[in-house]
Amino acid sequence: MSKERIKISEDLYDIMPSDYQDLVKSATYGKEDRGWKDIGNSKELIEQHSLCAGCPESMAFRYILASLPNPEDTVMVGSTGCTSLVFPMVAVHNIHSLFGNQNAIASGLKRALSVRFPGRTKDVVVLAGDGATVDIGLDMTLQAWFRQEKFTTICFDNELYANTGGQESGLMQKGFVAKMAPVGKLFDKVRLPEIARESGCHYVVQCTVSKPSLIEKVVRNAVMIAREIGPTYLQLYTPCILEIGKNSMEGLQEMRDSEKPTERFAYKEYISEPAKQLLAEVTAKDKEKKAAAKQLASQEA
């Protein structure tokens, strides 16, 4: 698993658009400790995007793509919504599913990949909005978790249907009035993280995308646990600045305000016992590697 499989034919190298040449030269495919700190030093796996200026979803995309542990062997499954505007610009294999059936597609995909490539680690990551995950696709979301399908589900929670002008979604907070939901939400935000835990997810996190290091940690954990143990779920607050009446530069502050301990996006985490054990093993291995590298460096010095 490395860049070796991503090579341009020598005789046609010069005609390839520069973004592909850059991907081959300086993207972090195959780098073991890839993470958000590579942003700015290497070619990102997202080219330009067509989201609104200042959209927190674009930050989320950049952090997630920088943090996937195995991007050259990862397939992402998207769904209808703002995310589907971005996937065409993403240099990771991806499938656009019909609205809501992303977890069903991912289930079949993960199984097919394990049959087709038995000796190779293939990760599947679902990335969809709250409408696809919680409203239209809730059946598929839950059934995948009940069946213990080994992939990660990431929900970009912007608390409404932003792409179509602001309709009410299940993850909208109670009482919120949106452009196309003038009465205001009459019931509470669906508690999907709790539902995920009860439905069999081994790793569940709810947070905002204000801190890249945190996103790196939770994405890596979620993918590693899904690979070895079972389903994992991340619910990330990516506010739609247009629909909540904010300016382009106010997205980050909105996330910081919403993640305070008493607010609705205070950090929540659930890890099952087998997942805890796996993470402990991974951490121990990482420590060993670092110690060995340090020792080697000191010997060389």
């Binding site: 991503i6 090579k7 341009i8 005789d11």
Partner: peptide, 22 residues
Amino acid sequence: FPGPLVLWAWNEKAAKKATAVR
């Protein structure tokens, strides 16, 4: 218009076809 099957050197044959296209 060369497509991905010759632009990317995913095997030896693809690279040879790329040479022929050039």
